[in-house]
């Protein structure tokens, strides 16, 4: 039964240089959930994601993707990294970047065929970038860059997605597009683990949430877990932040 869980993290401890950055992290993710991972800066959110994908080594604990280690099931996982992780001056077009998601499927050293390009185009249309396929990526706006990454993830047709701050510094239209994609994924039974920074929108976007501050403060369905008390435990005494969030929760309670 546990093998159907897209993600199970047990006792994960990751250390950089000497200091443990995250420790005793443990939670399960059920299929078809949209999980938001929130926490203050430096709390280890990116570290958690990277540790799940074997991008950094783990001091102790275990990560299971559909019941197996990441290496075994890596083809079922899609990754949308932070925008800063690549050089956007690279001489490729948006379509090129999206097609990269298919390279594994195409096979190493085999050429890209029409059907692959078409699949890439379809993905671009899904994210609303249909007429930008030939555009060089250096000429894309921040939101368009993000959507390109998203299209690339879609084209991988994975079952589990890890996304690192996809909503960071994007315009409203892109934000709506991303949310729509996420909901579409959920309907298809796919799972997404998303690092998110904007507390106000957590209840609206995610049905599950993980509050992380170097260890898991709380995790579970958003309605149950996203409480003032838990947020206080996660974020500490930053009043302005809490003010915003209490406002957001007040609005939610009032059904706005």
């Amino acid at each position: 039964m546990t093998s159907t869980l897209p993600l199970r993290i047990e006792d994960l401890t990751v250390a950089y240089h000497r200091k443990p950055v995250i420790w005793d992290v443990a939670f399960d993710v059920k299929p078809g959930s949209l999980v938001g991972v929130v926490g203050p800066n430096g709390a280890g959110k990116s570290t958690l994601l990277k540790a799940c994908m074997d991008l950094i080594p783990v001091a102790s604990g275990r990560v299971s993707i559909f019941g197996e280690p990441y290496k075994v099931n890596r083809h079922r996982v899609g990754y949308v990294p932070q925008r800063e992780s690549v050089d956007w001056d690279f001489p490729v077009s948006a379509l090129d970047v999206v097609t990269m998601g298919l390279y594994r499927e195409i096979g190493w050293f085999r050429p890209v065929r029409k059907k692959h390009k078409q699949a890439a185009r379809d993905a671009m249309e899904q994210v609303g970038l249909a007429d930008l396929e030939g555009r060089q990526i250096s000429q894309l706006s921040g939101g368009q860059q993000q959507r390109t990454f998203l299209a690339r993830a879609l084209v991988q047709d994975a079952d589990l997605y890890f996304m690192d701050e996809p909503f960071a510094a994007v315009d409203a239209a892109t934000e709506k597009a991303i949310v729509q994609i996420l909901r579409g994924m959920k309907q298809q039974g796919k799972t997404a683990i998303v690092i998110h920074h904007d507390l106000q929108t957590v209840p609206e976007y995610f049905d599950h949430v993980v509050l992380l501050n170097m260890r898991v403060v709380a995790n579970g369905p958003t309605e149950e877990v996203f409480t003032t008390e838990n947020l206080q435990k996660t974020y500490g005494g930053r009043l302005t932040l809490l003010d915003q969030v209490t406002e957001a929760m007040r609005r939610r309670d009032k059904g706005e």
């Binding site: 203050p40 170097m214 260890r215 206080q232 435990k233 500490g236 005494g237």
Partner: peptide, 14 residues
Amino acid sequence: LITHADVAAERVDR
């Protein structure tokens, strides 16, 4: 960590 969540990242050394 609970009471000082906002500065925890710098101070905590488990």
